[in-house]
Design a protein around this nucleic acid. Sequence first.
DNA 1: GTGGTCTAGACCACA
DNA 2: GTGGTCTAGACCACC
Lengths: 141, 141, 141, 141
Amino acid sequence: MEFRISPASGLPIYQQLVEQVRSGVARGKLAADEKLPSVRELSQSLVINPNTVARAYTELERDGVLYTRPGMGVFVAAKSAPLTKKVRRERLLPLVDQLLVEAVEMGCSLAELSKLISERSTVFEWNGTSEPSNASGGKRK
Amino acid sequence: MEFRISPASGLPIYQQLVEQVRSGVARGKLAADEKLPSVRELSQSLVINPNTVARAYTELERDGVLYTRPGMGVFVAAKSAPLTKKVRRERLLPLVDQLLVEAVEMGCSLAELSKLISERSTVFEWNGTSEPSNASGGKRK
Amino acid sequence: MEFRISPASGLPIYQQLVEQVRSGVARGKLAADEKLPSVRELSQSLVINPNTVARAYTELERDGVLYTRPGMGVFVAAKSAPLTKKVRRERLLPLVDQLLVEAVEMGCSLAELSKLISERSTVFEWNGTSEPSNASGGKRK
Amino acid sequence: MEFRISPASGLPIYQQLVEQVRSGVARGKLAADEKLPSVRELSQSLVINPNTVARAYTELERDGVLYTRPGMGVFVAAKSAPLTKKVRRERLLPLVDQLLVEAVEMGCSLAELSKLISERSTVFEWNGTSEPSNASGGKRK
DNA sequence: GTGGTCTAGACCACA
DNA sequence: GTGGTCTAGACCACC
């Protein structure tokens, strides 16, 4: 998997990396136990400081997304046990609300938003009840 | 409308204010041309630095959410002309993707996410043509 | 509250700080919303690099022990909602086992260990069923 | 006795081995003068570097847990003379405190912790004079 | 070779 | 004044 950073994005570099790894895992582009590029390697190819890469990796490890094999490198962790439904709701709510506020603000209709979500959702690796709802689509054949 | 700030949220205070105003407008709690509390009033009632309030208002004015009538105060702007569909997509995409990544990461099914969005969407003031789709709910009459 | 670091301890400096803050909170020496020494302040008094202090604070913030008020400093967070009993068990088990292994290894009797635990437990701020068991004592009058 | 290593544990491999041997001895799964697998055998069965196994054995020998009979292999040492009570206290204290801090931090009550310790303690081979106290259980006959 | 820790010093955002 | 980010470069532990 390739990593890219855009200095103009406003987001700190290490966070851009964090997001890309998370996103890669969620999309199935990064499989469990797959090795990530080494800190030195990635820092050279992106022309950034090794510490910056290390920070991203460290943060991802603390969140259980990656794990380190001392002396060997950094690897993708297996998916951990899913959280409670209640906890999921709590954590997702602010993101959902933020999205809805933005959508309403720019005059987007609910149907349009649903369609957008539906389109994007096909790229991800959903688990659980794989029956995609009509609303947000999913790759129904 | 009441404003609240939570010191422990981590977000800069001025951003908390910005978010609350935007959210208030999107939810219809703040009507067009409604007057907002003055910088001095708000800074006193929240016990924060007036500069902080001013910064929030400035930013909101720059984005066309508020307008200032010199000597009279700050007011809620009427909704500006909706952006083109393409621009909406571009701006919404990162938020949608972020939401989907988080949802997948915590083992949420697509159906569960759709239901959550559907529930929250009833609070907002959607515009445009769309009858809210069955899927994502909305306040059907 | 005073902080101390011992270079000979083997533990990284930032972890020593992390432990001391956690311990201070658990002992009630650090009250909720109390301000901690600033990064620069603490780094000067301990004669260590500001980054090292910052790292400790950052880690504690990610764990919900501290929170940052941008521009104002770092503060002690209020206790968050307690975890499930099951989760508590899971997290405590390795520590308990490690303790028991060490104790057995050095020829400590179970009674002696219990007494030691009992003694130390009086310093902490327990919550929940405050009825201290005979085994581990507590400050019964 | 079987050895297992988990690459994702974060702990260096040689330490995982050290811990397992120590734990095995404390639990009575490894008897005095029992022979351990050779460096070569173990490194092959675990698919790890022989140096890593050697390091673990060396460390355990240094601590008097194992002894080497040149040409014959590595064996479990008999329990050495117990340390003085004072030394035991000094070495156990940090572990005890760490455990208590964690327990308090996650809202565990003292009774709950005592119960947990009591349960786990039955697996170990306690020595010394002590009838296990009622409080912390142990395998009463 | 791998990552982890620490130092030094710069620059920016927030209040 | 506060903390947050990034760079540069050093040293150590692990395999």
